[in-house]
Lab assay of single mutants.
Amino acid sequence: DEEIEKWIETLLKRNISLRVNGKDLEIGSEEFKEWVEKFIKEV
């Protein structure tokens, strides 16, 4: 979905790490990609 890709790009540009389930996810890491894929499937 384009919306999500733009959102991810924005996050990448800002180099933010997300806190997911109490863990810091490094943007661009494998864990982050897995989380994004799960997130996309749920939406």
Rank of each mutant, 00 (worst) to 15 (best):
E37W: 15
W35S: 00
E9W: 14
D1E: 10
K23V: 08
G28V: 04
I16C: 15
E34D: 10
L11N: 00
E5W: 15
V20A: 04
K41I: 05
I16M: 03
D1H: 13
E30T: 10
E42D: 07
I16W: 01
V36H: 01
N15T: 12
S17V: 12
R14E: 08
L25V: 08
E42W: 15
G22K: 03
L18G: 00
R14H: 12
L18C: 13
T10H: 13
I27L: 09
L12G: 01
E42R: 14
S17E: 04
E42L: 14
N15G: 15
V43H: 10
W7E: 01
G28F: 11
L11D: 00
T10D: 08
K33N: 10
R14P: 03
E2H: 10
F32K: 00
I16V: 09
V36I: 13
W7N: 00
R14Q: 09
E9H: 07
F32Y: 05
E31L: 09
F39D: 00
I4G: 02
K41D: 03
D1F: 13
S17C: 15
E42H: 11
R14I: 12
E30H: 11
I40S: 03
D24S: 08
L12I: 08
E34W: 14
R14C: 06
E3M: 10
K6W: 13
K38V: 07
L12T: 03
R19M: 05
T10P: 00
G22D: 04
E37Q: 14
I27E: 02
I8P: 00
N21H: 04
E34R: 15
L18R: 01
V43C: 15
E3W: 15
V43E: 03
L11F: 13
I27F: 11
N15I: 15
L25A: 03
K33W: 15
I27A: 06
G22Q: 03
E3S: 12
T10A: 13
I40Y: 09
R14N: 11
E30R: 10
L25I: 10
K33C: 15
E2I: 10
V20I: 09
D1M: 13
E5C: 15
L25Q: 02
G22R: 02
I4Y: 09
V20K: 04
V36Q: 01
E5R: 14
L25P: 02
L25T: 02
W7Y: 04
V20Q: 04
N21A: 04
K38E: 05
W7C: 14
E5Y: 15
R14K: 07
V36T: 02
F32Q: 00
L12Q: 02
R19E: 03
